[in-house]
Every structure is written in structure tokens, then in C-alpha cells.
């Protein structure tokens, strides 16, 4: 079933890609092929391959159970929050929180996770800032 759904998604994406390519302007002084031909080729091949996936799928993939999917989704949310907080919150705070939270996802021991988060944040900051000379802000700029 996963194969069919994924194949269907790819087929739709390929069609959208094709449609989007038809909208490209053909410049007046273009080479014989122009900017559209190669995207056309890609979408046609992708469409054929996706149809094959729909019509002759492999055996069902091994998806994790609901609990694990939740844990992975939590990890995704942590990463997105981390990506958005790296600049406004500064490196030390955001890294300590994100690293601690990720560590908790793997081994749910609160005190240990806090220690790992804080430890990693400080150690990595020293390496990045003074070892590699990256321009990181330790603290939020308003502090």
C-alpha cells in the first residue's frame, strides 16, 4: 500500500512539474532545446516510474508503530523550533533545550537529559566559537 500511495504522490508531482514547465517563457534567442525540454524529460520518466510503482508495488514497508511515529514527529518539531530559535535566542539557550529534548527522546531520564543538553551546548559552543571561529551569538542579542 505504501508503494502505491508514494507512487501516486510522485505521479502527481511529476504532472505538476510538467505543467509548471509548460508555463516557462521560451526566450527569443534560445538554444534549440530551450529551458523546457529537460524538465519535460524528467517528468515523463518520473511519471512512468511512478505508474510502475503503483501497478506493481513491492511488499508492504515496515512502518513504525504509532508511538514511535509520535516520537519522530516530536523530534521534527524540536528541530523546527531549534532552526527558528537559533538566531533570536542565541546558541547556548536554544542548543541546550534542543539537545536536551532530543536526548530525552532517546533515553527518557529528565536529569540526565538536562545535563546532556547543557553540557553539549557549552562544549560545542567553545569548539565552534574558539576552535573554528564561527560567528555565533552565545546569548540573545537583547541581553
Amino acid at each position: 500500500m505504501s508503494d502505491r500511495i508514494f507512487g501516486l504522490i510522485i505521479a502527481v508531482v511529476a504532472l505538476a512539474f510538467f505543467a509548471s514547465a509548460t508555463q516557462l517563457e521560451q526566450p527569443f534567442f534560445a538554444d534549440p532545446l530551450g529551458p523546457k525540454a529537460f524538465p519535460y524529460l524528467i517528468s515523463v520518466v518520473a511519471f512512468i516510474a511512478a505508474s510502475m510503482m503503483i501497478f506493481s508495488p513491492d511488499k508492504e514497508s515496515n512502518w513504525p508503530n504509532f508511538k514511535t511515529l509520535i516520537r519522530i514527529s516530536v523530534a521534527v518539531i524540536i528541530l523546527i523550533l531549534y532552526a527558528n530559535s537559533l538566531k533570536p535566542l542565541g546558541f547556548l539557550f536554544s542548543t541546550a533545550i534542543a539537545a536536551g529534548a532530543l536526548s530525552y527522546q532517546i533515553r527518557p531520564r529528565s536529569i540526565e537529559s538536562i545535563a546532556i543538553g547543557v553540557g553539549l551546548s557549552v562544549v560545542l559552543f567553545i569548539i565552534f566559537k574558539y576552535g573554528l571561529g564561527l560567528g555565533l551569538f552565545a546569548f540573545p542579542r537583547w541581553l
Binding site: A98, L102, L136
Partner: peptide
């Protein structure tokens, strides 16, 4: 539990 967060943070930075 230490290794994985470390690798993630290094990739992000």
C-alpha cells in the same frame, strides 16, 4: 543519548 544530539547540533551549526 549524547551522540545523536551532538551529531544533530553539529549538522545544524
Amino acid at each position: 543519548s549524547i551522540l545523536l544530539p551532538a551529531v544533530t547540533m553539529i549538522s545544524f551549526v
